[in-house]
């Protein structure tokens, strides 16, 4: 197991290398100039050129890449052009919001999605099942930003129950009340992804139900609840866990839109702003961090199979 983990960790290096080459070429194929953006609409070409030199943007691309890569592997992702401060601290400032949003959404997805999927499978082909599936299908067909804006009209504008935008930090103020700013965003983000988990849970449950050992367990006269939980769910959970890596990426992708809708000070919105500002180091930094997270989550998922299913072992 340890040896396997170590081998997997080694494969991360080429992945990150490929990723950073891709990211860097993307960035430098973008037209436009961060210096021009920073100086606003009234800057003269001379002022822009002066700032470009100051920011080191006039160096050849390969030089910039080599410098960046060297420092990235030492844990330094460079400085933001726009904020004039280290990328890591820029990301850190925005991380609280995104971590909260992603975690709460994930909790909603797991707490709602899995049980509903299980019930739907158990009640296969009943009206309840069909209704659930219908709703799940609908939820997966709604654009997240549209759902968010509608929730905002209903709960913030018309009913005035919840704030419509922004998020004052909880960690800094210690005020847990601020979490109410995240209720609508989390529902928005969780909805389509819960739908996918419901469908996945249901179909993997149904697959397992067809297996011989389930029939045997039932024939042995075991209680139905035990059959469902111990035999069916236990086995179905592996394919659910394997989907969590993708769900995570889907959530991160979703934060970009959700944070924009609700004007949350998070990393997702920072991505959009940074693309528009051509703040290359920040975009590079964020994608780099996301890829690392993704790789680690996939590793954790694979390792967790061994705990979930005794038949799987890594040597």
């Amino acid at each position: 197991m340890l040896a396997y983990t170590f081998r997997r960790l080694l494969t991360i290096i080429p992945t990150l290398l490929i990723a950073s080459i891709l990211i860097f070429s993307f960035m430098h194929l973008m037209p436009g100039d961060p210096a021009a953006v920073m100086l606003g609409t009234n800057a003269t070409p001379e002022q822009v050129e002066k700032l470009r030199v100051q920011l080191g943007l006039d160096r050849p691309i390969y030089v910039q890449f080599a410098t960046w890569l060297q420092e990235a592997f030492r844990g330094d992702l460079g400085d933001s052009i726009f904020f004039q401060s280290p990328v890591l601290s820029v990301i850190q400032n925005r991380a609280e919001t995104s971590i909260f949003v992603a975690t709460f959404s994930m909790l909603i997805i797991l707490i709602l999605g899995i049980p509903i999927g299980v019930i739907s499978a158990v009640k296969y082909n009943t009206l309840l099942d069909q209704l659930t599936m219908g709703f799940a299908m609908l939820a997966a067909s709604i654009p997240t930003f549209w759902l968010g804006l509608n929730l905002m009209i209903l709960f913030s504008v018309n009913l005035d129950w919840l704030p419509s935008s922004g998020f004052p930090s909880v960690l800094e103020s210690g005020n847990l009340n601020n979490l109410k700013y995240l209720i609508l965003p989390c529902i928005t983000l969780a909805a389509p992804n819960s739908a996918l988990i419901i469908r996945l849970t249901r179909s993997s449950m149904l697959d397992v139900m067809k297996e011989e050992y389930v029939k045997t367990a039932r024939a042995k006269g075991l209680k139905e609840s035990i059959v469902i939980l111990k035999h069916i769910f236990r086995n179905a959970i592996i394919s659910i866990v394997s989907a969590l890596g993708f769900t995570f990426i889907a959530l991160l992708s979703g934060t970009v839109v959700t944070e924009t809708v609700f004007s949350l000070p998070g990393v997702g919105r920072l991505v959009v702003q940074s693309v528009l500002r051509r703040d290359y180091p920040v975009i590079q930094g964020i994608i780099f961090v996301v890829v690392i997270l993704y790789v680690f989550i996939n590793l954790l998922t694979d390792l967790s199979y061994a705990f979930l299913d005794p038949r799987i072992s890594y040597e």
Partner: peptide
């Protein structure tokens, strides 16, 4: 497939954002 796997690790909207910008 190696490259495709890496690209799949990029959140789709970020990838699309970057490509449109390019």
């Amino acid at each position: 497939m190696r490259i495709i796997d890496v690209v799949m690790a990029f959140p789709p909207i970020m990838l699309a954002l970057a490509l449109v910008a390019i």
